[in-house]
């Protein structure tokens, strides 16, 4: 599987071992990132990094697991309920600071549960077919008004690389 290296600059401790091992000089940049054009995806930098700041990212992702319609329906039902609970908790009148924190925490919990559930209904990989289908459908709807260009950009950003 073809890969390329990405450096998490919040973890990079400038040990520079990546510089020693990179055969193309892709890791030697001013901006702290790895030069996309020079990276050949050999993974030497990632293996050498003592801070584990470098990850190898695949160019293209394999097709994700498919889900039965029945399970998708179940997941949608639960996700809808979580979405509504979040909306209810955010529709409560503000009361004491304690109460507000409690409502906020449960609302957030519902969002995270909803996210995790929907993710497993076909949206695990943002480049996956379901996500692209979702975005293309948005393009043909009136949901997003003037954001057509942004959605087209998103589709482009998620399309497979061809290096």
């Amino acid at each position: 599987m073809k890969k390329y290296a990405i450096r998490d600059i919040t973890k990079c401790t400038k040990d520079c071992l990546c510089l020693y091992v990179c055969p193309t000089g892709a890791t030697d940049t001013e901006n702290g990132q790895i030069d996309f054009e020079k990276c050949i995806g050999c993974g030497a930098c990632s293996e050498a990094c003592p801070s584990r700041a470098i990850t190898m990212i695949p160019w293209n992702y394999p097709a994700e697991q498919t889900h039965s319609k029945l399970i998708i329906q179940k997941i949608h039902k639960l996700a809808e309920s979580k979405a509504n609970q979040e909306r209810m908790l955010e529709g409560l009148p503000k009361k004491s600071p304690n109460f507000n924190r409690l409502a906020k925490a449960i609302a957030k919990s519902n969002r995270i549960m909803g996210e995790d559930l929907l993710r497993e209904s076909g949206y695990l990989i943002p480049q996956g077919v379901e996500t692209i289908k979702f975005l293309k459908k948005l393009l043909n709807s009136d949901y997003v008004g003037k954001n057509t260009e942004e959605i087209e950009l998103l589709i482009q950003l998620l399309s497979p690389h061809n290096k």
């Binding site: 979405a83 909306r87 990989i125």
Partner: peptide, 17 residues
């Protein structure tokens, strides 16, 4: 997918990317 679910789906996709 309701708007509530679409919001949740998109915030998760944001995390994914």
């Amino acid at each position: 997918l309701s708007f509530g679910q679409m919001s949740i789906l998109c915030s998760n996709l944001a995390k994914g990317v």
